[in-house]
Simulated scan of single mutants.
Amino acid sequence: MKRCSTALVTYSSSDDGDDERPAKKRKLPSLSSFLVPNLPVDNPAQHQGRIRTKPHVEGQFAAHVYVPLVVEQRSPLCGLIDEILDNSKDLVPTLTALWPRKDRIKRQELHISLSHPTFLRAHQREDLKKAVKSLSKQFSPRFTISFAALSELTNDEKTRTFLALEIGAGHHELRTLSNTLSPALQAIRQKEFYSNPRFHASIAWALLDRPLSESRPESVLIPRSTFAEGHPEQVTEAGFPTIPHFPKELIPTLNSRHGVQLASIKTGSFDINEISLKIGKEVYTWKLSA
């Protein structure tokens, strides 16, 4: 019987010599431009120096629940607001009106907030819409509010201070609306409104100085001129002036000049019969219809 001999085949290893070369890494092709999402760029220069206080997250929608108050262009309140702003700018030249006269239309809206600015995921939008619609059906078709005084209110992030018209009559009804909304906000893991809210309608705002430890390098905030009480006025990187706060005499002066007219029934009293929800750029409004 003839035996077949088998030859052993040997394979070279990395230890056998220096001839082995590493494999070339393949460079992956770059994504096409239409596949790359265009994320919003926070540019304060395009928003009068305002800074986004919460970073943009893809798939999130800013939302806000409020009571709308329509003010006609020729109404006593509209004329009074113009007077207040004119007097305010004498002490705070950097004040920015929410109703610039050059952009004004016949019917303006003041907003009385019932919630914090809220950030929703796409699937939460319908839940909040249903909650606000349900809320509108629980309240009588009309209640009356009136303005009591002017005040200074600062946002939670301490980036802006606001000149506001504070609510007097109607505070109880507004608080009941806000409290009734709280369980719906909690259900979608959103923060409920303040425990002791100061219901108001803002009419103007100014940028506030930001502590250097919380902002950018010191060179970004440049002392420019003297402000009331010796505080230096500063300028943001985009060139917008900031202030530490309103001058102490501003609010007492405005209330002394305009408080009586603001609180009068003819000027500052309004019937409320709607509630609104803004999600992104969409606004939904329901009549109070209990």
Rank of each mutant, 00 (worst) to 15 (best):
residue 223 P to C: 04
residue 161 T to L: 05
residue 64 H to Y: 15
residue 236 T to D: 03
residue 145 I to P: 03
residue 258 H to M: 01
residue 31 L to S: 07
residue 157 E to L: 03
residue 101 R to I: 12
residue 264 S to L: 07
residue 140 S to E: 12
residue 136 S to C: 07
residue 85 L to I: 14
residue 192 E to P: 14
residue 21 R to P: 00
residue 155 N to R: 03
residue 259 G to I: 02
residue 243 I to V: 15
residue 194 Y to G: 02
residue 61 F to T: 12
residue 216 R to S: 13
residue 273 N to H: 04
residue 199 F to T: 07
residue 192 E to G: 07
residue 235 V to R: 07
residue 24 K to A: 00
residue 48 Q to G: 08
residue 50 R to Q: 15
residue 181 L to V: 10
residue 281 K to S: 14
residue 225 S to E: 14
residue 109 E to F: 09
residue 225 S to D: 14
residue 26 R to N: 08
residue 284 Y to F: 14
residue 257 R to D: 14
residue 9 V to L: 11
residue 242 T to Q: 01
residue 124 Q to V: 11
residue 75 S to T: 03
residue 138 Q to F: 08
residue 150 L to D: 13
residue 71 V to M: 00
residue 108 Q to I: 10
residue 122 A to P: 01
residue 63 A to D: 02
residue 234 Q to H: 15
residue 239 G to V: 01
residue 219 S to Q: 12
residue 14 S to R: 07
residue 164 A to V: 15
residue 101 R to E: 15
residue 6 T to K: 01
residue 44 P to K: 03
residue 34 F to Q: 11
residue 132 V to L: 04
residue 234 Q to A: 08
residue 2 K to F: 11
residue 9 V to M: 07
residue 71 V to G: 02
residue 287 K to G: 06
residue 205 W to L: 12
residue 54 K to W: 06
residue 134 S to D: 13
residue 240 F to M: 00
residue 93 P to A: 04
residue 252 P to Y: 03
residue 226 T to V: 12
residue 71 V to T: 02
residue 152 E to R: 10
residue 83 E to M: 03
residue 214 E to G: 08
residue 259 G to F: 03
residue 141 P to W: 04
residue 53 T to I: 11
residue 104 R to K: 12
residue 163 L to Y: 05
residue 38 N to G: 05
residue 226 T to H: 08
residue 142 R to D: 15
residue 225 S to H: 08
residue 61 F to K: 05
residue 96 T to H: 06
residue 260 V to C: 10
residue 156 D to T: 11
residue 281 K to H: 10
residue 35 L to F: 11
residue 132 V to Y: 03
residue 211 P to H: 10
